[in-house]
Design a protein around this nucleic acid. Sequence first.
DNA 1: GCAGGCCAATTGTGATCACAGTTTCGCAGG
DNA 2: CCTGCGAAACTGTGATCACAATTGGCCTGC
Lengths: 232, 232
Amino acid sequence: MTISGTETGATSRLAVHDRVYASLRDALITGRIAPGLGVSLRSLAADLGVSPMPVRDAVRRLAAERALAINPANKRLSVPSLTADRLEQLALARSLIEPELAQRAAEQTDAVLISRLRRLDATVDLALAEGDVGRYMAANHAFHFTLYRHGRAEVLLTLADSLWLQIGPFMRVVFGRIGTLGLAADHHMAALEGLQQRDPMAVRRAIAADIAMGMDALRADGVSQPTDAAED
Amino acid sequence: MTISGTETGATSRLAVHDRVYASLRDALITGRIAPGLGVSLRSLAADLGVSPMPVRDAVRRLAAERALAINPANKRLSVPSLTADRLEQLALARSLIEPELAQRAAEQTDAVLISRLRRLDATVDLALAEGDVGRYMAANHAFHFTLYRHGRAEVLLTLADSLWLQIGPFMRVVFGRIGTLGLAADHHMAALEGLQQRDPMAVRRAIAADIAMGMDALRADGVSQPTDAAED
DNA sequence: GCAGGCCAATTGTGATCACAGTTTCGCAGG
DNA sequence: CCTGCGAAACTGTGATCACAATTGGCCTGC
């Protein structure tokens, strides 16, 4: 399995461990690493062409964000496995945090934000039409966080960040299984409408609905089973 | 400044970086490290009598939880400084997450939990009576998280953990400044009452009130100024 | 007396190595 | 053919070193 996605460049200025973190994070958010799968510092380092040291830093960071799990017994690393309980908690937490961020963003919206979001939503639709799961996951993430970042709420944004990192594997599994049935974009449109109308509460409701719907899709698929991955 | 608090022992089985993490975490939660203060890997390592390596691991973890800040320019470490905006966000996030945890805990309460909480609440009261800020902070933390842990909601618990880590310095500053005026314990009693009566919603309300009150105290003290610490 | 520049100390980062624990795989014995 | 055992490979952990960047202080020159 290769971790490194599309090398976007311009990251050369960052520290090595930051680039490693970004790579792993992207791989997790877009679901490129299967849940339950074990990883190791040295293998990741070899994959990314760096020494184990910066990988260790990045992994520690991801473990702190619960995007990677550390087996307390043998200290080995793995992608957290999917359980119904975890999903319910993530859904609840998202529904508490993200609508607030959306509302705050809407309260200080501007034209450039709206146009950027329109462009991202178009990418989402395109990815859905093409059935490109990876691109859909990336574009959907970009849409939400371009909006959220505009809320200028660093603390809440960090929480949302961590939650998406944890829920990425879930989404990938379900979309990989049932295909990208054309459901997602609708609430994005409603959110954009709310932004245009300067109606923060409408944006809040739209995002809340978007989250609820995505979570229902995950629930309906029944990801409760351990999902050992690796099989096949 | 010494970081290491009361060495509780029994931690000798853990990895070194875990003990370092626990030490720093405890120092932050009880507010033993002043906000805005700069720290360095080597100085911390010297303080704790270990090599810089495990300190580096622990610091990375704390930085990921936003309990420590890394200056993006010179990469230097510091305790996050206190701003009114950060406080508001932390207050909001706490009020969203923690009542939920309290309710879940209450829904599966048992006698041993109640008695443990009673004992901890007594310690809180004692610390308040004695004006022992450090002990109060530790006991208050123990009370809340003994309750929260009982909710068996790992994801939400992690979020609450991170929030307390961030809000510790605020609490220490205000209690150090205005003294531990005897306000805090009341809602603990209401929560215990709710647990006894098997009334989860009452427990939820009590915890929500407890958070709101603590946050009001912080707000009233006006921690908005940069608070360079270090002075005096 | 004060400003500016130079040098030493300190910083985080990354590589490399040693080590102990665990896992894994193959081979020998039944 | 199956079961056990032992060695080899692999795991995370921690220490030590080198390095570039930044900081801080001292001294010189005005």
